[in-house]
Design a protein around this nucleic acid. Sequence first.
DNA 1: TATTTAAATGCAACTTAGTTGCAAATATAA
DNA 2: TTATATTTGCAACTAAGTTGCATTTAAATA
Lengths: 141, 141
Amino acid sequence: MDNMKLIGDLLHSHGLKKTPIRTEVLELFMDHDFALSASDIVAKMTAGHDRVTIYRALSSFEEHGILHRASEDGQGTKYALCGHKCPDEQHTDKHAHFVCDECHQTYCLEDVQVPEVEVSSEFTVERTSFVLGGICRQCQQ
Amino acid sequence: MDNMKLIGDLLHSHGLKKTPIRTEVLELFMDHDFALSASDIVAKMTAGHDRVTIYRALSSFEEHGILHRASEDGQGTKYALCGHKCPDEQHTDKHAHFVCDECHQTYCLEDVQVPEVEVSSEFTVERTSFVLGGICRQCQQ
DNA sequence: TATTTAAATGCAACTTAGTTGCAAATATAA
DNA sequence: TTATATTTGCAACTAAGTTGCATTTAAATA
Ligand SMILES: [Zn+2]
Ligand SMILES: [Zn+2]
Ligand SMILES: [Zn+2]
Ligand SMILES: [Zn+2]
């Protein structure tokens, strides 16, 4: 598990300082296969770090393409690394996401491409979000 | 413009009492071709009605299939009648929506069907939301 | 028309997500 | 080791949305 090395490189390659908080946040993302919100992270962080710092880390990671928005239901924005344990390129919004109505977890559906559609020339499309909702396997049994 | 008749029938057919506030809310939806949030409505309503009442009207209309959720960006949930001036059936989530990054207005793209996709059997899909973002014609000039 | 009652409204208070300004702390580079 | 830009913490704020409860009102019916 040399996530540490990975994280160091990732932060450095984006000109971001490697701080304990950022490191821990990225570790959390690598240790989960579902998306995390700011408050999820605050709850999972060891020490009692300030919410604001977490919000700023998430914004910064999003701006640098380290994280992408996976969903934004009323309970807050959830973020994810693009591929689970692949903190690399293509953190795009080109795949769909799934939100479970039961456990409220959000998953990246990396093998479900967001479809291309024809839209009236009245609109210039620059972003796309395709979010499916329902029940995940754990919540079904 | 016998929207009044339409609104009366609509409310009555759902067993909802016809009140001045609900009437005015539905008129607002009929008079706009973009989706409206609770605070949009509060701002456009004549008298100074309570926010809570508007939230409750919107929830009630959503439960009865009179309105559907068009988008929920960080700035709040926007609702729309299914067809502009067609307060009837099929207030489904089967069409896409467009959110303008400039004016922050949300439009129903009633001719853009939400695509059907194959999803891993790990997930049981019950809802779908397909939201496009970009710039609308007015904001492009 | 007058009475009754369930439904709708208003108000106050609360929760939660997210933001801003500023001072103090700290990661890195020289 | 020092200097500096970046990051963090704190306090305070905004905005969306919710809840409980008392009051009002639409509409059914007597
Ligand atoms: Zn679940
Ligand atoms: Zn994703
Ligand atoms: Zn626009
Ligand atoms: Zn719509």
